[in-house]
Design a binder for these strands. Structure first.
Lengths: 154, 154
DNA sequence: ATTAAAATCACCCTAAAGTATGAGCCAAAA
DNA sequence: TTTTGGCTCATACTTTAGGGTGATTTTAAT
């Protein structure tokens, strides 16, 4: 219990002790003062130095280190294809959008995809636009490349 | 130049200025000392407080922020890629055409490829047309897919 | 030196892709 | 029941891609 208290408030306690020591020093210097008249500058200087150090020490001990967080992406290789589901969830690509993306990756035109999925060309355009939006790209080739790198498609 | 020096050593300069102010204060208190005899304790206490603060301030200003790098894993396809040279020879794709094909696979537009290779857009169009011809496709996405399947690109 | 392939660029035109916006339908969730 | 999200489709417009043709300049090989 006492040890715990010591551990938690060590910095403050040491600071207090230092203050006590200072008072002793002061009394001693008060006596010295009679002898060496201009010791007051030295006295003040010493106190300044000591307490500057103390302040620095306190700050270093008590302040949390300032941190700058830098996020860096690390590429991890995966041999055979496994869908990167967390990434898929993060991007929020729907089932249909994934279908379109896959057919895109096979080199089909929007028209061919429309025929394949029995929907209109406009529908495919809408889907692909959403895919580009979610993948943050503006071309199908870029979308395919990015999706591959994210293991969204084989 | 002078401004730069100020910016770089601001903390130290302010610290120096504070010391100068302290000396004035000291001289003033030296006079006060004659009147109020036991002001030395207050005097020392004030210096202690001021310089503790200064020390803390200095420490906060001068400590370098710690940088933490957080690494986020991103899955990427493994590249145990070996160029299918016989196929490349069979199709007769030139060096430049391969370059264009690779940049295409990275999702770049013709314009971007042109900029990258320091040639005109028309040149890239010519190259890509030849690539499509040789790969027997009519779209870049199809060309990329086919080239990948033939191990011409990673 | 001549030839052939490669690389460069231009112009014109069409096709395909992409953007923006709005809207209707339907099923699952709140 | 209302809301939400996904899927569908349309219209209008802009941008990019692709096809065809022709021409000049390097570069490499014969």
């Amino acid at each position: 219990m006492a040890l715990h208290f010591w551990a938690r408030n060590r910095s403050v306690l040491i600071y207090g002790a230092s203050l006590a020591v200072l008072l002793f020093l002061m009394k001693w210097l008060e006596w010295r003062f009679m002898i060496i008249d201009h010791a007051v500058e030295l006295y003040a200087g010493a106190i300044a130095i000591i307490f500057t150090s103390l302040g620095i020490w306190l700050a270093v001990k008590l302040t949390r280190p300032k941190t700058i967080i830098i996020e860096r992406e690390v590429l991890v290789k995966s041999d055979d294809f496994v869908l990167n589901e967390p990434e898929l969830g993060r991007l929020g690509l729907s089932k249909r959008e994934m279908e379109v993306l896959q057919l895109m990756a096979e080199g089909l035109s929007n028209h061919q995809i429309a025929d394949r999925l029995f929907v209109s060309l406009n529908t495919i355009k809408t889907h692909s636009s959403k895919v580009f939006e979610k993948l943050d790209v503006q071309r199908r080739t870029h979308a395919v490349d990015k999706a591959r790198k994210l293991s969204l498609i084989p």
